[in-house]
Each structure stands twice: as C-alpha cells, then as structure tokens.
Simulated scan of single mutants.
Amino acid sequence: MGSTRGLRYGDGVLGGPQDAEQTRLAAMADVCDPTTIRVLDDLGVGPGWHALEVGAGGGSIALWLAGRVGATGHVVATDLDIDPLQRRLHAQGDRRRHTPGRGPLTVLRHDVTSDPPPEQGPFDLVHARFVLEHLPERERVLDRLVSWLRPGGTLVVESIARFPLDSCARPAFRRAMDALDTVLAATIGTDSTWARTFPTPLRARGLSEVGMTVHLPVTGGANASALCWALTLTRLRTRIVERRLAGDDVLDAALAQLADPDFADLAFATVLAWGRAPAHTTDAPGSRG
C-alpha cells in the first residue's frame, strides 16, 4: 500500500501536542507495554546494554529500558516528535533523579528514514514499535536498523495486523475500523498486512534465533484498548468522512460500542518479531572492549 499524498504520521494525521493525542498514546502503552516488556525480558535485556528505542512516543518503553540497563548501560530514545517524552521527563524529573539504577537516557529528534545513525551506536538492542508499518520505505528502514546492531545484538520489531477484523460480526465496528485502516494507507502509506510476512524479513537479513509472537487484546468494556481506538477514530473522523469510507452514522455507532461497558470484540493485533545479528566476536551484550 503506498501513500497517495506523501504525508507522514506526524503531519496532522496522527501525533501532535493535543491532550487527546497524549491520552491516546498513554492508552496504547497500557495495552501494549506488558507484552513488549515480557518479550524484552525473555530476550535477556539487562545491565550494561546499549539500547535504541525507535519511535519512542510517550516514552514508556524507553523509561523501562533505562531502568533495566542500569547505570552502566545507555538508552537512546528517538522520534520525529520528542515533545511527549520530554514533557514526561520534565514532569517526573525530581523522582527520576532519585531513582536507584536509572541508566542514562538520551532523547534525540531523529528521522529513521534519512538521518545518520545515532552516534551512541552500535547497539545491543534496537526496538521499534508501530513505526515501520507506517513507512512506505519500511524495507529500506529495516535494513538500516539491522545495520545499527552490534555483533550479536538483538532487533525487535512490532507492527499492527488487521486480520482479526476479517471475522468481525458487528457491521458498524468493522466498517469503522476498516475505514481507519484505509485512510491510514491512503494518507501515510500504512500497511497493516506487512506483519503477516514476519518473521521472513528478519531471516532474509541474516538474523538468527528468530522468533515471533502475537498479542491480540480484547477491545471493549471501555478498557484502554477501546479508549485508544475511540480516540484514533475521532482523530481520523474528518478524513474518513471526506473520503466517504464511512458516514457519521457508522462512526457514531462504532464509538458508542467502544464506550459500552458490555461491548467486547477484537480490533487489530500486534505481531512481534525478533532476531540476533551474527556474533562476529565473543563479546557479551553490553561489553565495550
């Protein structure tokens, strides 16, 4: 799926400083962070690691990584829009300064499609969540991320996948979410089918110990997933209606369902894939000879 207008995620499609957008990012983190943390924990992320968090958003995973790598490690958190993370750091700055074991954290405004590699690399871990599927040049960017790994370093990629919608039996909810998917594809080039090719893209780049898992949260009961999708639909509503992908009646019905404590369904899944770069040396992660 290609972008028809050459827009990016933060060009007024999603992203930005609005309070609702910060709430949306926080809800997304509430839904996704436990699975992300479990995978990173299982992969052995620990003290002394140097980690790159691509598309850091509100910074929840970057902050978790900073705590995990400890005083001997380092985390670089990048995004085109670093204001949400900077505001979060400012708001909890006093507490963070007195938290034992909090490793150094660098926040960097960075375009993963074109900017030079962060100078703190190469990295023991490169993690990107909900980034590559929104980039038409995702395959080239994946090449870049792999090249930023140290020998034996680990890449973790997380992307949305639309397949749960295909069996949805609620017409309004399915039409609204289909419209959301279509408008993102038309504006910024999102491909919600790309994750179904996992883990092949990682194997094709020479990574080993490749694995994958799928996170499929229940959306409903006014939970964090329902809030996230309601705010996303609301943000994209004008673009959806302008393209006649769904009318106000359909969107109103879907939003009412998402606010209904008795509603439960499946929206998008998250596919996580990981692999390790060839270990050309015998260094352990985090070692800097």
Rank of each mutant, 00 (worst) to 15 (best):
M177S: 09
P118M: 02
F163L: 07
Q86P: 00
G57F: 00
R276V: 09
P34H: 10
G2Y: 09
A224D: 14
R102D: 11
E209D: 15
P118W: 05
P104D: 12
T232N: 06
D124N: 08
E242Y: 08
T182Q: 08
F163I: 07
G48V: 03
R276C: 12
T72K: 09
A20D: 15
W229R: 06
A172G: 10
V75R: 06
L155E: 02
R24Q: 04
H90A: 14
W49R: 04
R205N: 05
H110S: 03
G73K: 08
D252H: 09
G247Y: 07
Q120H: 09
D166R: 15
A56S: 12
Q120S: 08
A56R: 01
P201M: 05
W148Y: 08
T238V: 10
L65H: 01
R102M: 14
S192F: 15
V141Q: 11
P47L: 04
E137A: 11
L216P: 00
R24I: 05
V39C: 09
T232I: 06
G189F: 11
F163E: 13
R203Y: 13
V126R: 07
V45G: 00
D115P: 05
T193C: 12
A56K: 02
H215N: 13
A277T: 01
T78F: 01
C228N: 14
H74P: 00
R203Q: 13
A273C: 14
R102S: 13
V31H: 02
T200V: 13
R175S: 14
V157C: 06
R174F: 13
G73M: 05
D115R: 09
L135K: 02
A27F: 03
H90V: 07
G211K: 06
A273Y: 11
T4N: 13
G103I: 00
G206K: 05
S60P: 00
Q86L: 12
D94W: 10
V241N: 04
G247Q: 07
G48W: 05
R87W: 06
R239L: 14
D115W: 08
D283Y: 10
G44Y: 06
V183L: 08
D83L: 14
T106M: 07
L52S: 04
L65F: 06
M1K: 11
A128G: 08
S192L: 15
V76C: 07
L251Q: 01
G211Q: 12
S147A: 13
Q22F: 09
P117L: 07
R140Y: 02
P122Q: 09
P100D: 03
L145Y: 03
T23R: 11
D124H: 01
E133V: 07
P201L: 03
T281N: 12
D81Q: 09
Q18V: 07
D262G: 15
T270W: 10
H50W: 11
G73D: 03
R109H: 11
R239M: 13
R140L: 11
V210E: 08
G48N: 08
S225W: 07
G206L: 13
V214M: 10
N223F: 01
G121I: 04
R235M: 05
P151N: 03
D19F: 06
R138D: 07
I188N: 10
L165A: 03
G221W: 04
